[in-house]
């Protein structure tokens, strides 16, 4: 094989850019000192104890998880049928409709957030959870529609016809043939949606309230007040949680299969 020094150098640079900041955060979390510094001063896990014990963090984590799970479920509940209709149905104005469902990708989140703040929270006096739920669901819609649609495009339509010919009703054919083939796409859309919601700052920043704040926003607030290793410990815990999810996803369905829908 021919050695490609430039490609290799770029790859190394890529890894460095992606991994080194993580290293700083993880390293900083294990410091024995009381300020966030790299290299860490000594080794201790006491900041992890403090992070776990921090009530505002654990409350925010619960809020974030709840919001991410429910908004992902809602986005899939709307997005999967929309993807089906866009790919299989003969509906007028198809591209317009698809554009509508993909538009949250290009509309600034602050605009969506402001609109929801004005209308739902001020105008209709709804809770910040409801406003955030609507906001996040809208935000995740493009993932649900696009990723599911991509896996749907791979599922040959004659499969459903074959099932019909063998005696399936339209619903039975959909349930036994199309849906199982859609599963990897729905899984990857769900995973992407969950991560997007969990990490979201702009919308959450605008729509939070004293009763309901998400973890990223709460952490942001915390950093502005005290710059100590608790925040690094919390970040490390989130990172660990993500890795665990990734490993489980790889073991059960396989990453290639989950993200197979995209490529």
């Amino acid at each position: 094989m021919k050695a490609r020094p430039i490609a290799a150098a770029l790859a190394v640079l890529g890894y460095v850019v992606m991994l080194v900041p993580i290293l700083f955060v993880v390293g900083g979390a294990f410091t024995a000192g009381s300020t966030l510094k790299f290299p860490p001063e000594g080794f201790s896990v006491r900041w992890f104890g403090e992070a776990v014990a921090n009530e505002s963090f654990s409350q925010a984590l619960t809020s974030s998880l709840l919001l991410a799970v429910v908004s992902t479920a809602l986005a899939l509940a709307v997005g999967v049928p929309v993807a089906l209709a866009l790919h299989r149905g003969h509906i007028p104005g198809r591209s317009l409709l698809e554009g509508l469902f993909l538009s949250p990708l290009v509309i600034p989140e602050l605009v969506i957030g402001l609109a929801l703040y004005q209308q739902l929270m001020i105008g209709l006096k709804q809770t910040s959870f409801l406003a955030l739920l609507v906001g996040h669901t809208v935000l995740l819609m493009p993932y649900a529609v696009r990723v599911t649609g991509a896996s749907l495009a791979l599922a040959d339509q004659s499969l459903e016809e074959a099932a019909r010919g063998l005696g399936s009703s339209p619903w039975h054919a959909f349930r036994t043939v199309t849906l199982p083939l859609l599963r990897p796409g729905v899984m990857s859309a769900g995973l992407l949606g969950f991560i997007t919601s969990f990490n979201n700052v702009p919308l959450s920043l605008l729509l939070q309230s004293r009763d309901f704040g998400t973890l990223p926003v709460t952490m942001l607030d915390y950093i502005q007040q005290s710059y100590d290793p608790v925040i690094a410990a919390m970040s490390t815990l989130i990172l660990a949680g993500t890795v665990v999810i990734a490993v489980i996803a790889e073991r059960t369905v396989g990453f290639t299969k989950i993200f197979g829908g995209i490529n």
């Binding site: 016809e161 074959a162 019909r164 010919g165 063998l166 005696g167 009703s169």
Partner: peptide
């Protein structure tokens, strides 16, 4: 199609 009892090879 499901009421016709025909075998189709695509």
């Amino acid at each position: 199609p499901e009421k016709r009892n025909l075998g189709m090879v695509f």
